[in-house]
């Protein structure tokens, strides 16, 4: 294993950077879609119900199934992989944000309205700040799922650490498979730990 790493440092670094690029792009796009959607839906209970149900379904679908389903639509490569990962990131952020926004302390929201906040001011200055812990929890879940999901991008030619595993399998190069697998696992753990640390730090602040 160490031997494989010593022999192929560039291949490993490439795969790792690709993996990170996939994950960060997918996560950012997913959040950029999910947060505004949650803000738009927060005051529309019926639509929010539907969106939650839809997000729930999307969350249940296995990542590999999503990748495979997108293949005929978007083809292969980096971009379709990012789209698939964004779809993976969307449900947890949307669901958590909706729960947070709709659960924001009713007395504070009532007071905001009664003192003359416009609905938009109340949403952005009261409800969203109060929902932030939930939003962050959603972000953490999404990040871990995206980092794990990115290891499947290799199946549609998206690259990443998954490549080390699939190539290793094809070549029956067990050390390479091991390096890929362990790197994916460590990256997922680091993501979980990193976001958890941020969350605790921020809650204490």
């Amino acid at each position: 294993m160490i031997g494989w790493l010593r022999a192929n440092p560039d291949a490993f670094l490439d795969a790792l950077l690709q993996h990170l690029a996939l994950s960060v792009s997918g996560l950012l796009i997913g959040v950029a879609l999910a947060l505004p959607a949650a803000l738009l839906l927060a005051r529309r209970p019926v639509l929010a119900e539907w969106a939650s149900a839809g997000a729930g379904v999307l969350r249940t679908l296995p990542s590999l199934a999503v990748l495979a389903a997108l293949l005929p639509l978007l083809g292969v490569g980096f971009t379709p992989s990012v789209v698939a990962l964004a779809l993976l990131a969307l449900p947890p952020v949307l669901l958590h944000a909706l729960v947070g926004l709709r659960g924001a302390e009713p007395a504070a929201v009532e007071a905001a309205r009664g003192m003359g906040f416009t609905p938009l001011q109340s949403l952005l200055r009261v409800e969203l700040p109060l929902a932030l812990p939930q939003v962050f929890a959603g972000l953490r879940t999404a990040a871990v799922q995206v980092v794990s999901g990115a290891s499947l991008a290799t199946f549609i030619g998206g690259g990443g650490l998954g490549d080390l595993v699939t190539q290793g399998m094809a070549l029956l190069d067990i050390p390479q498979v091991q390096v890929g697998g362990i790197a994916i696992a460590l990256l997922a753990l680091a993501t979980e730990g990193g976001f958890g640390w941020l969350q605790r730090r921020w809650e204490r602040a």
């Binding site: 007395a107 504070a108 009532e110 007071a111 905001a112 009664g114 003192m115 009261v126």
Partner: peptide, 11 residues
């Protein structure tokens, strides 16, 4: 406008 518990903004 004053409501029960004051309805202060916790944040």
């Amino acid at each position: 406008y004053v409501i029960q518990e004051g309805g202060l903004f916790p944040h």
